[in-house]
């Protein structure tokens, strides 16, 4: 007869492989959460063993542009470490002085900003017009689905990676949620291209500038996601470029 831990070990092997599912997965995760150091160590050991699998395949080198993009993001502080270091006293003085200086500069610039109030909108309009002028730009209707069947939209897309999405009848996302916009090339993972916000009337728009990809986009979708979800869609689809 198998001991209790023998059963967990068997499940631990399949869990480390990522293939455990259903009730067995729930039970094993609950067992790990209960603090079983033996199983935790066993899963860790299995994961080290499984590294042999990917070392078995022929290496493929990524393009240097990926590293450039990554470091640009970090340099521009789009990516901030989760645990930020506490600010020193000197740093606090720097912030206070900086804030005062920014206030003065802000007052001087206020007049200029007022005159330029509509410039961002103007820039977007210009970008959309330029997109429409390009014969390679495609125009996709978007259909409401799931929780928002009345929502509608249009997606202008150019394979250069530039696009624009317009939506209507899409109620504002609930607190803690956002509308994530995805492009999907054939047999590829959905690619997050931005977050769209809607106003009181349910209208919204988003201009998109992404690096060109090697496969043409076939489908466009908007999903309702917890704020910050950009790796892969997990929530319900609210708009899609193909009717269900």
């Amino acid at each position: 007869m198998r001991s209790e831990h023998e059963r967990w070990r068997e499940q631990g092997e399949i869990y480390a492989l990522g293939a455990l599912d259903g009730q067995e997965l729930k039970e094993f995760e609950a067992h790990l959460t209960s603090g079983c150091a033996i199983c935790e160590a066993y899963v860790r050991e299995m994961r080290e063993t499984l590294l042999l699998l990917h070392r078995s395949i022929t290496p493929t080198t990524p393009s240097p542009s990926v590293k450039t993009r990554l470091f640009n993001d970090i340099a521009s502080e789009k990516v901030v470490p989760l645990a930020a270091k506490p600010r020193s006293t000197w740093r606090r003085w720097q912030v206070i002085t900086g804030t005062l200086a920014a206030g003065l500069v802000g007052a001087v610039l206020a007049g200029t900003l007022i005159t330029k109030r509509y410039e961002p909108r103007h820039t977007v309009y210009t970008s959309v017009i330029n997109l429409l002028r390009d014969p390679a730009t495609r125009d996709f209707p978007l259909y409401g689905t799931g929780p928002t069947p009345k929502a509608v939209g249009r997606f202008l897309w150019n394979e250069s990676g530039e696009g624009h999405i317009f939506v209507s009848n899409l109620p504002a996302a609930p607190e803690g949620k956002m509308y994530a916009v995805w492009t999907i090339a054939q047999a590829s993972a959905p690619r997050y291209v931005g977050t769209i916000q809607t106003d009181r009337t349910g209208q919204g728009g988003l201009h998109i500038n992404m690096p060109r990809t090697d496969q043409p986009v076939e489908t466009f979708a908007v999903t309702l996601e917890p704020v910050g979800t950009t790796a892969a869609p997990t929530g319900p689809m609210v708009l899609v470029s193909k009717p269900a």
């Binding site: 990917h54 022929t58 493929t60 990524p62 990926v66 990554l70 590829s188 690619r191 990809t213």
Partner: peptide, 27 residues
Amino acid sequence: STLVFTLAMRMLKARSDAEDLLQEVFV
């Protein structure tokens, strides 16, 4: 990066998806 990218290419097939994944992993 080559280890991660090799795995990503093997799993996702498309180079652009694999490059996106590589960037996300290192972020």
